[in-house]
C-alpha cells in the first residue's frame, strides 16, 4: 500500500522508483522449511550395535558414499539407491571428514576413526551409546561441532544410524 503511494508520488514528480525493479525474492519460507530441529538426546535402540555382517556392510556403504546417484557399486541388501519418490538416497559421506580403514580420498575435519575398536572401544573409552548419539545428533555432546546431524533431521533412520555405529565400532 505504502509502496503504491510512494510510486505515485515519484511518478508524479517525474522520476520512477527504480528500487521497484530490483529482483528481491523472499527467502523466509525457504529458510523456515530448511531449519534444523533442536539438539536431541536419543536412547540407543535395543540390539543396535551388532556384529551382523549385513548391518556392517550397510554401515560401511553409507560411510564411504555420498548418494545413490554418484555411487557405482550396487547397494548392499536392505539399502536403497533410489527412494520410492524417485530421488536419490543420500548417504553419510563420512569419509569427507574422517579417515577410516580403506578410505579413499578422505578428509581430516573430523578425527581419524581407524583402529577405532582397539583404540577406543576395547579400551573402554567409547561405548555404543556415545557413538550412536554422536552420529544421530553430535550437537548434544558438542554444541559447536562441525559434524553433520544425521537422525534429528531425518537424513537416516534409527537402523541406519545403528548400521553406521556398528561399522565404526567393528573390527576391520
Amino acid at each position: 500500500m505504502r509502496k503504491v503511494i510512494m510510486l505515485g508520488i515519484a511518478t508524479f514528480l517525474g522520476a520512477a522508483d527504480l528500487s521497484q525493479v530490483i529482483e528481491i525474492p523472499d527467502a523466509t519460507a525457504i529458510l523456515l522449511k530448511d531449519a534444523l530441529p533442536a539438539p536431541k538426546l536419543y536412547a540407543m535402540p535395543e540390539g543396535c550395535i551388532t556384529d551382523d555382517l549385513a548391518a556392517i556392510a550397510r554401515g560401511k556403504y553409507i560411510f564411504h558414499n555420498l548418494n545413490g546417484k554418484e555411487t557405482k557399486e550396487p547397494a548392499p541388501e536392505g539399502l536403497l539407491k533410489v527412494l520410492p519418490n524417485g530421488k536419490e538416497k543420500q548417504y553419510g559421506n563420512c569419509v569427507a571428514c574422517h579417515n577410516i580403514e580403506g578410505a579413499k580420498g578422505y578428509g581430516n575435519i573430523g578425527p581419524d576413526l581407524s583402529n577405532y575398536k582397539s583404540l577406543f572401544v576395547d579400551s573402554g573409552a567409547r561405548k555404543g551409546e556415545f557413538v550412536y548419539q554422536k552420529i544421530a545428533d553430535p550437537r548434544m555432546d558438542n554444541a559447536e561441532t562441525h559434524m553433520t546431524v544425521n537422525l534429528a533431521n531425518g537424513l537416516f533412520n534409527e537402523r541406519e544410524v545403528c548400521d553406521l555405529a556398528s561399522y565404526v565400532m567393528s573390527k576391520k
Binding site: N93, A96, C97, G107, R139, H146, V149, N153, L155
Partner: peptide, 21 residues
C-alpha cells in the same frame, strides 16, 4: 538442511586448511 551443516561448518577459522574429502 539435509545434513545440518552451516557455511561455518566448513569455513570457520578452525577448519580452514583442513580437507573435505
Amino acid at each position: 538442511g539435509g545434513r545440518g551443516l552451516s557455511c561455518n561448518s566448513c569455513h570457520s577459522a578452525d577448519v580452514v586448511g583442513q580437507r573435505l574429502r
